[in-house]
Design a protein around this nucleic acid. Structure first.
Lengths: 198, 198
DNA sequence: GTCTATAGGCAGATAGAC
DNA sequence: GTCTATCTGCCTATAGAC
């Protein structure tokens, strides 16, 4: 691989890393360019060079987070595990985020939805829609294979799972911690997996 | 009831009403004294007269919301309905909030938890703890009576229900709307109510 | 109780030197 | 690419007149 052209290489990624952490902890309206600049040892003008407006930064944050998130879902699919293990792996993505003392980037942004510019709103909606689609597909397969025993339509169940995990993270931080998050995931998994006839 | 002493009577409540709406839509960091003052036709100095600091206002908002919320739970208990109807009524509290194009005040504040002063954090934790307790009691009764068929401990199930409802509201606003919220509640209710042997 | 006036700080953003 | 310097605007908060 050829050497990168500039010494500044990676600055955009460093900015995204620092901003991402702040959004996941403090929210999009809870951090400033000065915060990020301070951590990186640059001035706010440098941040504006890479991301002219805060919405530009926000858009890239959602895009990058989504890319990684759905890459992780593709990773789950490429692994051999059965459908139960895949759903369990899905919940573990959220659990790892919470363990790092952050919340889901898109969950945080969803709470600020009404204050966000349109480009960010659209990407946020896409994130949840793609989660819903991925889970719906998994649930359909599980139902066809006989391993899952949930009731109701798969789309509704899928979006309910996303909401349950996002909400479990939210509540866990204010009350109950990781223990209450795990209670929520295991309850959800038991309900989906409960063997027919039980 | 005697006449109120001042023409200004009710100003504190009007401030709380206007601020509450803003927190439920925009978040605690998403509104300003100027917003509230503008709606009420007064200046920001008037708001500061009743609530010297924004944290004072936030504390009263949580206290008042909690009083009303737990009064609604007491109302549910005083009505004759069976345990299934009570749990259903619990979810309808959240549904009415979402129908008014707001989110739960405490859910919104939970997303901003790390930016809040300590007095607000404590009251927030109390809100979720009291919800957990109320639901735990309901679940214990339902289990003893044989009407509920969930697995796992009641406290974990209780906090999972709170998280599922909070998260369902959050996600519904960014994607799916009321339809996806209802899917989440009916899934949750079916799981708790599923008759043994099914 | 509510106002005018204003302080003091921090936000996002820009121009232009280097 | 990154800086210095600065702008404009909004924020929370306060002093003091009425």
């Amino acid at each position: 691989m050829a050497a990168r052209p500039h010494s500044a290489n990676g600055m955009a990624e460093q900015i995204l890393d620092a901003a991402e952490k702040r959004v996941q902890v403090l929210g999009f309206n809870g951090f400033s360019y000065a915060d990020v600049a301070g951590e990186l040892g640059v001035t706010t003008a440098t941040i504006h060079y890479y991301f002219p407006g805060k919405t530009d930064l926000g858009v890239r944050l959602i895009e990058r987070y989504s890319e990684r998130f759905f890459a992780a879902l593709a990773e789950i699919e490429s692994n051999a595990g059965d459908l139960c293990e895949r759903l369990r792996a899905y919940t573990e993505i959220y659990e790892r985020v919470l363990a790092s003392e952050r919340l889901c980037l898109c969950g945080m942004l969803a709470s600020e939805y009404e204050t966000l510019a349109e480009p960010m709103r659209e990407l946020l909606s896409d994130f949840f829609r793609r989660n819903e689609e991925w889970l719906s597909s998994l649930l359909d397969q599980g139902r066809a294979a006989g391993g899952f025993d949930f009731e109701g339509d798969t789309n509704g169940t899928a979006i309910a799972i996303v909401g349950a995990l996002e909400g479990a993270m939210l509540v866990a931080r204010a009350h109950g911690g990781m223990k209450s998050f795990r209670a929520a995931t295991s309850l959800m998994l038991m309900n989906v997996f409960r063997p027919p006839g039980k």
